[in-house]
Design a protein around this nucleic acid. Structure first.
Lengths: 204, 204
DNA sequence: GTCTATAGAAAGATAGAC
DNA sequence: GTCTATCTTTCTATAGAC
C-alpha cells in the first residue's frame, strides 16, 4: 500500500528510494571503472548494488544516462592534479606514480576514461565532463599563454602513463622504482608548467 | 568441386584461400582500429572482406586469434617513432602532430590500442606485441640509463596525446595550431631523449 | 572454398504483479 | 519500491549442404 504503520515489510531488502539510487550509482562507478562502458552490463551494476537489473533503468532511464551520472561524480573530485602551480609538477608526479603503482587500488577517473573510450557516446560524455571539471580548472591555474593547450597535454601525459602502466602493464613501467619514475614524470610536467617563450606561429 | 577446368563458378565470388585470408585480416585491422576489440563483431569484419562470418572463424579459429594476428601486423611497421636518436624528438613530434590532426586518416596502431584496451585479453595481446615490435627497439636507440623506462614513457606520451586529441577530442587539442603543438611535443620528448643525470634512487 | 541456417548465451529495456 | 518474467536484438561459434 502507499503507506502503512508496519515497517516490517516482507520481500525486498530495502524500501528507500534515495539510498537505492545511491547504491546503484556507486556500483556503477566501480563497474564502469573496472570493465568500461561496453564491458559493464546493467545486471553487473545491479548485482553490485544488491538490486535487480530493472531498477537500474527505473532510476536512471538508460545505461547511457547512468553512465553520464557516474562519470560526472567520478570526475568531480580532483585528486591527481595539484591546485598550486608552484608545486604542480612535483605533487602531480608524486601522486601519479603512487596511484599507478602495481599494488594501488584501481578506482580512478582516468581508468574509467581509458576503459570506456572505445564507445563514441561514452567519449562524448567524458569530453563534456573533462571540460566541466578539469579542463577549465587546469587552464586557470597554469600561467602564461596557451594554458588550455598545456593543460590538456598534461592530462594526455597522465592518461598515457595510466594506460601503459596499469592497463597495458609494460614490464619497464610496472617494475620501475617509484622515485625514479616520479623524477622522470616531474621533469616532463615541468615543461608544461613553465610558460613557453612567446614566438609567432611561424614554422621556421 | 575439388578441381575443375571450369573457372566460371556459380555461387561464391572468390575461390582463393590466401586472398580471402588476407582480405579478412585487412578488414579486421580496419574494424578493430575503428571500433575496438569489443566493438567490432565478426560479422563486421566479414562484411568488410566480402565474405560471411563463418569464414572468419574458419581461417582464424576465433575472434581472439584474429585479433592477435591483426595486432601483430598493425604494430609491425614503425611509422611514428623515428629511428635516429639525434632527431627523434623533432621527427616524432612532427609525425604525431600530423597524424592526430582532425583531418588525418585514422588507421593507426595507437588507435587500435586505445580502443581495445578495455578488454583484458586484448590488453595482454597488445602488451606482447608492443614488447616485440617497439619497446625493445626504442630501448635500443635511446642513449643513457633507464632507456627502457624512458622509451615506455615516450609511448605513454604518444598514446595519451592520441587519446585526448582523436578519441576524446578536447577543444584545445583539436583546435590548436599544428606548429604550436609540434613545438610543445618536441620540448616534452626531448626530456625523455636526453639521458638523465645519474643520481641514486634516494627519495630525498 | 563458401554458403545458409541455427545453436546457445548475453545484452538493454519493458510489462505487469504484489 | 521492488520483484519475476519476457521481448527483442546481437553476439560468437558450429553443423551440414553444395
Amino acid at each position: 500500500m502507499t503507506t502503512g504503520t508496519h515497517e516490517s515489510d516482507h520481500g525486498p531488502r530495502r524500501r528507500d528510494a534515495s539510498a537505492t539510487r545511491e547504491a546503484i550509482l556507486n556500483s556503477a562507478i566501480e563497474a564502469f571503472t573496472r570493465l568500461g562502458y561496453d564491458g559493464a552490463g546493467v545486471r553487473e551494476v545491479a548485482g553490485g548494488a544488491g538490486v535487480t537489473a530493472m531498477l537500474v533503468n527505473r532510476y536512471f532511464g538508460s545505461k547511457e544516462q547512468l553512465f553520464a551520472e557516474a562519470v560526472d561524480r567520478s570526475f568531480a573530485p580532483r585528486t591527481v592534479v595539484s591546485n598550486d602551480p608552484s608545486e604542480l609538477s612535483e605533487q602531480t608526479a608524486t601522486r601519479l606514480a603512487a596511484r599507478t603503482a602495481p599494488d594501488a587500488d584501481n578506482l580512478d577517473p582516468f581508468l574509467l576514461m581509458l576503459r570506456s573510450a572505445a564507445n563514441p557516446r561514452a567519449a562524448e560524455i567524458m569530453r563534456a565532463a573533462i571540460e566541466k571539471h578539469v579542463g577549465q580548472h587546469l587552464a586557470g591555474i597554469l600561467p602564461g599563454p596557451e594554458a588550455a593547450l598545456r593543460g590538456d597535454l598534461l592530462l594526455s601525459l597522465i592518461a598515457g602513463v595510466w594506460l601503459m602502466r596499469k592497463v597495458i602493464a609494460t614490464p619497464a613501467l610496472t617494475g620501475v622504482d617509484q622515485g625514479t619514475l616520479t623524477r622522470q614524470l616531474q621533469d616532463l610536467m615541468q615543461v608544461l608548467v613553465d610558460a613557453p617563450q612567446d614566438q609567432t606561429t611561424s614554422n621556421s
